[in-house]
């Protein structure tokens, strides 16, 4: 599937069966001024990451620990992707660890559409205008 590209090439990848089939998450992200690509499983992620140079991976993860594994995978592929975790199960310490070990952001599920939109947008803008 060819990825839609904007002029900067920054893309939002929405990852995970639960996330891509959640209409609230999809509609929140589809309203943002960056192309959105839906990726059902982690095995499709590598292919998807090749289609765009950088952006945010918004991933549904069962818990932050699973998210950290994903983060390590992302790092191995390219350092230009920010990871935003959406997770239904997290405690404070797990969330703190996730951020300490490199996740860009973590949002508890169920999400509030406005919050998700703002946080992803702010991550994308931080990529577009570093510092």
């Amino acid at each position: 599937m060819p990825a839609p590209q904007d002029e900067n090439g920054f893309t939002i990848l929405l990852l995970g069966q639960e996330a891509v089939s959640d209409p609230r998450i999809c509609s929140a992200l589809a309203g943002l001024p960056w192309p959105l690509q839906l990726v059902e499983s982690e095995s499709d992620l590598r292919i998807a990451l090749r289609t765009a140079p950088a952006g945010c991976v918004v991933a549904h993860v069962e818990d932050p620990r699973a998210g950290l594994r994903l983060h390590a995978d992302l790092r191995a592929i390219s350092g230009d992707w920010l990871l935003i975790m959406l997770t239904p199960r997290t405690g404070i310490q797990a969330a703190v660890s996730a951020l300490k070990f490199g996740a860009h952001d973590l949002i508890e599920m169920p999400i509030v559409e406005r919050v998700l939109r703002e946080r992803v947008a702010s991550a994308m803008r931080s990529l577009e205008n570093p510092q």
């Binding site: 997290t90 404070i92 703190v96 300490k100 952001d105 949002i107 508890e108």
Partner: peptide, 10 residues
Amino acid sequence: DVPMAVDAMK
């Protein structure tokens, strides 16, 4: 809570 922790870390 989690949002407060995330905010502080960010």
